[in-house]
Design a protein around this nucleic acid. Structure first.
Lengths: 233, 233
DNA sequence: TGTTGCTTTATTGTTGACAATGTGGCTCTG
DNA sequence: CAGAGCCACATTGTCAACAATAAAGCAACA
């Protein structure tokens, strides 16, 4: 029970990272008391926390039953990426048409951190930073409503990427990290250069690229647990 | 303390209607105990309620101070309408390209109810139904993410419309009601007729029309209370 | 052996009492 | 009389015990 509400955000982020890093597999039950003991928070706080996580669709809150790590379906994944394309294209359009030197610098600094994360091989950090790059664009575009929407789906997006990037690491991972980052670079150039249409297109391509990397099979609708068991190997 | 969670939604809606109908003016403080007594709910439930309202930006939750009915600024209003245009254009595009007879019927039935509300002069109901028409389009378009975004901003939109439609009823209100409804009609025709581009354009025009009706002055940044006092007369 | 119903147990949901905090009024002083 | 500091009250925030519910285990029966 340290510094209250601040701590709440910290714990939120720790749980989020655990989910994205697949330390907490989808479907895992999150018991209130366990979390309470683990993080030294009262059950009341844990409750708030779970509520927030469920708002962001990272956990599934089943009444009288418990909280479970969400398992977004391929359909949800596609839906989310469609929404992202729509929203982020608009945000990039805004930002590209009015990007200042100061804003460019902020984006550059962020990219630098992304680059470091990749070099250090910190996959979890990389995913988070990659998401935050998009959020930064929203913030700088100064469109509070659209940006708040982004805040709602980007964590979900990260979960999806973690889920469907496939445990089969056949040529995927490392390449993808670099690819994503270099796409961010190109995006930054277009934005800073006020090449509006090009920036928009790059953003759309970038999101398409991420989605295309995912292994979104038609989703065998059968026993979901089986799928997870097989996914272990 | 009747039927628990169901009641929560009911109360939520009652408060929402009170806000939109200007029975609760922006800035009004909502005391937990008052609400608790008024609706026969425990303070815990009231707390949840206020949390939900604050998520939808209908009330402002100030820590250790209280909950206040939100007063969206003209900037927020514009931002929200921009977001609506972006999202609803997309939803209409989706729906118009795949609208079935059954879906057309649902929309028609809704319009009928809107029409009745206007005839009965029930302004509060009319605003709610008008919002719900847009939500229905989202639902039928079968785009969960974008539709959930709509759910978040349409109540806010309604508050804004109520706030800025101006107390001066000079030729506005009644006309506007009918106008909005007839625009909904035209929209429905285009959607049901699968005239995709036309439907999209009608939606954008419609939203522009609503925004244009608002009296969004540059917002005298001075003492906000004064503005409200003057608005009383 | 498999299934149904019951009992126990583990977990979530709710409430009321208590603690923390902010606000307004009062007094005292310059 | 104006202003600062203090005190009391009103209100929100937190917690811990209790109630309600669902899951798990068990036993009896087919």
């Amino acid at each position: 029970m340290n510094n209250k509400t601040n701590n709440l955000d910290t714990v939120y982020q720790r749980i989020w990272e655990a989910i994205v890093a697949h330390k907490l597999l989808p479907g895992t039950r999150l018991k209130e008391e366990d979390l309470s003991e683990t993080f030294g928070l009262s059950r009341g706080f844990v409750r708030k926390l779970l509520l927030q996580l469920s708002y962001h669709k990272l956990v599934n809150l089943v009444p009288n039953s418990g909280a479970f790590v969400a398992e977004p379906s391929p359909e949800e994944a596609r839906d989310i990426f469609q929404a992202r394309r729509l929203i982020e294209a608009e945000l990039v359009r805004e930002l590209a048409s009015k990007c200042t030197v100061r804003e460019k610098k902020l984006l550059l600094e962020h990219l630098e951190r992304e680059h470091q994360a990749i070099e250090q091989g910190d996959q979890s950090l990389r995913i988070r930073l990659s998401g935050e790059f998009h959020l930064l664009i929203g913030k700088l575009a100064d469109k509070p409503v659209l940006t708040s929407f982004l805040h709602e789906i980007i964590p979900r997006s990260s979960l999806i990427v973690a889920l469907y990037q496939g445990s089969g690491s056949r040529k995927g991972r490392a390449n993808h990290s670099g690819l994503s980052c270099s796409e961010h670079n190109a995006l930054l150039d277009a934005i800073a250069g006020h090449h509006v249409d090009q920036a928009v297109q790059l953003m759309i391509d970038h999101l398409n690229e991420i989605e295309a990397q995912l292994q979104l099979e038609p989703a065998a609708e059968e026993d979901v647990n089986l799928k997870h068991i097989f996914a272990e190997f």
